[in-house]
Structures are given as C-alpha cells and as structure tokens.
Design a protein around this nucleic acid. Structure first.
Lengths: 186, 186
DNA sequence: GTCTATAGGGTGATAGAC
DNA sequence: GTCTATCACCCTATAGAC
C-alpha cells in the first residue's frame, strides 16, 4: 500500500476520534488502531501528536473550502447561504452526538499552546470570511456584512453546542429554519 | 483550619483550572498545589477526580442561580435580562482568554461518560430555563418563550466561542449590544 | 520503509505512618 | 484527620531489528 494512503488514513481516523472524544482523551494508540496501522509507524508520518493535530486541522480546512466551493457554484449569494445551512442539516446526527468538530477543536485547543490555538481559530475564520463575502455580495457594507456574518456563525455554533448538550435534533432543526427565514428576508 | 474550608478551596481551585486548561489537561497535582493542599489529601475529600468534577459543576450551578436571584430582585423581566447581559459584559476578560466556563465544561464533558455529560448539560439548562421564564413573564406563549430563550442562549454561547477564538473583546461588546437592543424592542 | 519492543515521564489512586 | 511515599498504569516517543 502506498505510504501516502496510510498517512491519509491516520488523519481521517484522528479527525473522527478527535471529534468524538476530544484531542486530549484520544491516544495515538487509538488512532493507529482505527487506521489499522502499527503504533510505532505513526511516528514515521508525524513527528509528534501535535503535528498530527495540525494535519487534522488542515484537513478540516480543506473540507470547509470544498463545501464553500460547491456552494459558490450557485448564482445567488442567498442561495449559497441556504445551501450551507442545508449541508449542516444533513449532518444532524453528528451534531446531536458529538457537536461541531470545528467548534470542539477550537474550544479545546484554545486552552493549549498558541500555535494550535491559532490554527484552530483559522478554521472558524475561513467559515466566517466566506459568510461575510456572501453578505457583501448581497449589497451590505463591509462593517454590516461583518456583523451579520458574526451573528450568523455565533448562532450556528451556539446551536450546535445546545443540540449536542441536550441531544436535541428538533432544537437544531428549528434554529436552522429560523436562520433560513432570516436569510430569505434580506 | 476547618476541613470544610479545604474542600471549598479545592473546588474553587479546580473551577479555575478547569476553565483555564480544560478538565483533561488539569491534574489533581495542579489542583492540590493551587489550593495549597497536599496531593494525597485530595482523596480524603473526593473519592475520584470524577467526583471532584461533579462538585465543580454543582458550584457553577450555584453561581448561576445566585446571579439569577440577584436579577430577580429587579421588577421588570426586561430589566432582568439586561442585568444578566450586563453581568456577562463585566466578565469580558475571562471570555476573551478562556471562553465561557459552562460552555467549555459542557463541550468537553459531552465527550466523556454519560453521568458527567448530563450534569454539565444541567448547567446550560438552568441558564436556559430562567431566560425562558423571563420571556413568559413578558407575555410570550410557552413555545415562543422557549424559542426565544434558545435563540438568545445560542447566540451568547456562540459569541463566547468566537470571542475566545479570536481574542476579540470588541466582538463580544458588539454582540452584547445587539442582544440588548433586541430585548429592549420586545 | 516497516514494525516490535521498550524506554521515560507523568497521572490517578492507595497504603500506612503520625 | 493529615500527610508522605509510592504503586500500578498509561501515554508519548524512540531505538533498533528486519
């Protein structure tokens, strides 16, 4: 098997386990086992656990940008925002059981060293910037677009937290509906 | 020194350290040192680390209820909600550096065992219930009060996350202003 | 390049003196 | 009741055979 594939499998396994149990409580042995790679082999691909976390963050960033690129294929910024929310809706079971992976990582890594804090914050920044761009394209001024984007993303992240805490899929559904209505009435 | 005081000091130290570094990364040695109590002595007061976490959650719950009781002394539900937001505003440096302690605990413990998940979720539930009660007193129907409460608390929690991630006190200030305006215009 | 075995350090928890 | 000393375990990381 190509060595690059093993690397990808390790990242994918880490992404899942970090989201499910948090970074601190996930051991390299867990990750190696899930990826069906011997433990010692992990260190051939990643120097430290921290560098694996970085790779996971980058993979998440790629996921976000791929989703945004898909939304960008729609002509209207309003439709793009609705497509983003529709994608969140499809991930409902994940939000109920484990919360938002980006929010979880950001929250946890903000309590560790600066380097990983910044990397994780970059995830939410990418998310936020794209939303802000859509509001700009809808004719909002820069400061108003920024405020609307923060408002929307904060609502989303808080909703994901409550959805997870209370294991409440209907809470998620209702909040998404409300946000969709807000976007339509712009 | 009374033994109950040492117990309280341990809980207080744990509360601070959990909020700053997360539960998983805080060791009992850290807590004992911060509370100026010998390490072995911790186990006289708490059987396990988990039981100490439970005690910390209960202390947080007490804090929330104390704050809500203070707000309840105001006659108007609108003023009470504004007083709650004013209290959040005063804790700005904490939100910037460490985020919301309740949100952090809920997020982290939701990835551990069921017992602590439920206890942490109870924190946000207490917060949410009180907000919902205020909306009821403002004449909203039960389902509408519930929706408004979720909307407000989700916005708050998401705002705390973004404030912490981006180390952005102005983001917090602007979002609190916006939420205050929403409450005033009810 | 790949894997086994293990070192080295730290953590939760306990035993037992005082 | 209080504290010291220490156990037993687990985790990251490395050494070295193949």
């Amino acid at each position: 098997m190509p060595t690059a594939l093993k690397r990808d499998r390790l990242i994918e396994a880490a992404k899942t386990l970090f989201a499910q149990h948090g970074v601190a409580r996930t051991t390299l042995a867990d990750i190696a086992q899930a990826a069906e790679v011997p433990l010692g082999n992990v260190y051939y691909h990643f120097r430290t656990k921290e560098s694996l976390v970085e790779a996971v963050i980058q993979a998440h960033r790629h996921d976000i940008q791929t989703l945004q690129a898909q939304c960008d294929r729609l002509p209207d910024p309003r439709q793009r925002l609705l497509a983003l929310l529709a994608a969140e809706r499809e991930a409902e079971p994940m939000f109920v059981r484990f919360g938002c992976p980006y929010g979880s990582l950001s929250q946890e890594l903000n309590k560790e060293d600066q380097l990983l804090s910044d990397a994780a914050a970059g995830l939410l920044q990418v998310y936020l910037d794209w939303v802000q761009t859509q509001f700009r394209l809808l004719g909002k001024s820069v400061p108003e677009a920024e405020e609307r984007a923060i408002e929307l993303v904060a609502s989303l992240q808080g909703t994901f937290l409550l959805t997870n805490c209370f294991r409440a899929p209907t809470l998620l559904a209702r909040q998404l509906e409300r946000l969709e209505e807000q976007i339509c009435s712009l």
